[in-house]
Computed example of a mutant assay.
Amino acid sequence: MHINLALDLNLKIDLHTHSSASDGTLSPRSLIQYAAKHGLSGIALTDHDTLAGLSEAEFEAKKINNFVFVPGIELSTEHRNIEIHILGYHINLKDETFRKKIAIINDARINRLNQMISKLQNIGIEFNKDIIENLEKIKNPGRLHLARALKEMKVVSTIDEAFQKYLSRGSPGYYPRFKLTPDEAINLIRMANGIPVLAHPGLIKSDELVSYLMKYPFEGIEVYYPSHSKADIQKYTSIAQKHGLFITGGSDFHAPPESGIRNNSIGHCSVSISSVSKMITKK
């Protein structure tokens, strides 16, 4: 990908967004339009465990003058029962090994959804035919889809309540799913010529584990994230500088704030175009 270095390098890009190809509400096309309308000069689309929305998003981005689009993915991994998310940028979309592994993960997601529905039915929650059919149509299902269904069914009042009561680890509807290890995910990204970045390290809630993860060949760390405090930003900036990592940031946008699904506004915790140009010129 070429970035016009004549652009104002202070223009902003959000490097962590989701579309309806995973658990966002906007289609990839609509997400690009929404980002441009809200003053961004670019985004990375980083849907969970899927590359499905990238072609549509890239096609739409090309229609907007000087809009920078970065293809990406967010892989869920686990280390000693702690979930660790890893962003991968500029994956070779034709890499067969990568695509086959993603297909395995997708099958596991579908199985997990069915298992969680069954567990919820076993405790007396009834899903009507329309809800079941809508869930079955989702190609890359996650817990957020099920949380939305529970809200629609008025089993819960909010998405957060759905997770707290039914879908989080230890709750009656929770079912674990297949996850890569951090090492597997990083190697998968690197073998597909991508750039692996540790996502929202503050959510890991363990400085010791974040330090341990630095033994892996990450190329970046998501320093700027909505829930990161000023102290977190300073801490992760220091880690980035110590290990020679790219400093990235993004909103983890899933839906417009008025939807009540998540409160992260697109562009919140965005970074300058200059950060992206450095990442791209490395490849």
Rank of each mutant, 00 (worst) to 15 (best):
L213R: 08
N65C: 08
L51W: 04
H38V: 00
E133G: 13
S41T: 04
G42W: 03
L180I: 00
S22M: 09
F246G: 11
K37Y: 06
G194P: 14
V197D: 10
M153I: 08
S41G: 12
Q241E: 13
L26Q: 11
L9C: 14
D252T: 08
L146C: 04
A44S: 14
G24V: 04
S272Q: 09
Y212S: 10
N134I: 06
I86K: 02
D95R: 02
C269E: 10
T77E: 00
P217Q: 04
I138Q: 00
D49H: 11
I117H: 05
M191A: 15
V271D: 07
V223P: 10
I186L: 12
E83K: 15
K101S: 06
N134R: 15
H243V: 02
I105E: 00
N65F: 09
M214G: 05
F218G: 00
N4G: 09
H48C: 01
Y174W: 05
N122P: 05
A61Y: 09
R262T: 11
Q121A: 10
P172H: 05
H200G: 09
S168H: 15
S19R: 11
L113Q: 06
K283F: 15
I186M: 12
I132Y: 02
I84E: 04
V276F: 01
H18K: 00
L15W: 07
I266S: 03
D14C: 08
A149C: 03
P71E: 02
G24C: 05
E58K: 06
A103H: 07
A6G: 13
E83F: 10
L203Y: 11
Y216F: 11
S238M: 14
L26R: 09
G53H: 01
L144N: 14
K139I: 08
A35W: 05
A240D: 10
K139T: 10
I117M: 08
V276R: 02
I189D: 06
V276P: 08
V223E: 04
N106H: 04
H2C: 13
N128L: 03
A149G: 07
E136C: 15
Y212H: 15
Y224H: 14
L167M: 12
D252F: 11
S55K: 14
I125W: 10
E83I: 06
S206W: 07
A149L: 01
L213T: 03
D160E: 13
L87G: 01
I3P: 13
S275T: 14
I102F: 03
L135S: 02
G249T: 01
I247H: 10
I64P: 13
S229L: 00
